[in-house]
Computed example of a mutant assay.
Amino acid sequence: MVTGDLLSRARAGDGEAFRELAESHRRELQVHCYRMLGSFADAEDAVQETMLAAWQGIGGFAEERASLRTWLYKIATNRCLNARRAARRRPAREWDMSQFEPPVPTPRDEPVWLQPFPDTLLEAAVDRPLGPEARYEQTEATSLAFVTALQLLPPRQVAVLILRDVLGFHASEVAEMLEVTVESVNSALKRARASLQRRQQLAAGRPPPPTAGSPAEEVIVARFVRAWESADLDALVALLTDDVFIAMPPEPFGYEGRDLVARYWARQFGAGRRFDLVPTRANGQPAFGAYLSVPGGIRHATGFYVLTLAGNRICAMTRFDTSVLSWFGLPRSLPSR
């Protein structure tokens, strides 16, 4: 429960008291909105809207009905539902795959709006206590694969699954947040779980990734960096699973399979191009800012890569554009060597 004196002062219009009450929840709400929306930028906007709405409505907050944390999650969830529904009304861009030079990418039925989330911000949120009915580890529930799968569900199913299975709220609490019946919550959860299970079965044969920061992870990451920076295509291909996929949000296509990825990378390293990688972490996974290496010149950023590992192999790489670099404290260019 919240401190009664702070709540009384906030209801009386004391902004400092409200910030003291609400700000401790900001980071976990940001992660929640990110899971709902798949977008770091949109999550930040949703949290800002949540805090404004909470400040405007704090006078009507009844502590005996729900905790402040639950009330904030209710506001944030409904802001995200509105954003998801608005996004679904925007027409999708159509692509003519014949326009591409070989190797031609593989179309994919995935969300076209997906962004990475910095681990430095996750660390402040994933250690929050969960409800007794949570089914997912917090690290698993922030992986790119999980967030991607969420974006393919209908908005209400996304909200129910996150609130119930990721955060562990009771069905009655979720029903109150969404202003629906408990039966409606249980029905949506059943459908969401079935959809996720079908997607998880596709990767069921893969070994689990090594623990974040473990020696096993460090070995494969070091091998990848050495091979990438030296443009050693054979060494890179040896690190891949047979069904590896390179995704490039927001484009709804990528490169699937070891052979196609090898051809794509061969073109990328063509004409002697070399790249330097600056390591970081996103969504609990190894990530890198990539910079074009120019002898004696400034090295400009060309992209941001997130690796998905399966055992001691790479099963996916997600490439984002350079607009995400600042979220990870990475510059747009590096000085010459």
Rank of each mutant, 00 (worst) to 15 (best):
H300K: 11
A266G: 13
P208D: 02
P209C: 04
A301M: 00
F275W: 05
Q197E: 11
D243L: 08
S230I: 02
P286Q: 13
A216S: 08
A238G: 15
S230L: 04
A188I: 01
R267W: 09
V306W: 01
L236G: 08
N186V: 02
Y305D: 06
T322Q: 08
L202Y: 04
D234M: 08
G296C: 03
I314Y: 03
A247G: 14
G205V: 13
F304R: 07
G297M: 12
R299A: 11
Q200W: 11
A238H: 10
W327C: 10
S187E: 11
W228K: 07
Y255V: 13
D321V: 00
R319Q: 05
F245N: 01
S323M: 06
F304S: 08
C315W: 07
V278G: 05
L325I: 06
L189A: 07
A271S: 03
E229I: 00
I298L: 08
T280K: 02
Y255Q: 04
D259M: 15
P207A: 07
P209T: 01
D259E: 15
R273F: 05
W228H: 10
R319T: 03
G311E: 02
A188V: 01
D276Q: 11
F253G: 05
L239F: 13
N283E: 13
S230D: 05
F304V: 13
S326G: 08
T211S: 13
V219W: 11
D321A: 00
F245Q: 02
K190M: 02
L196I: 03
P207Q: 06
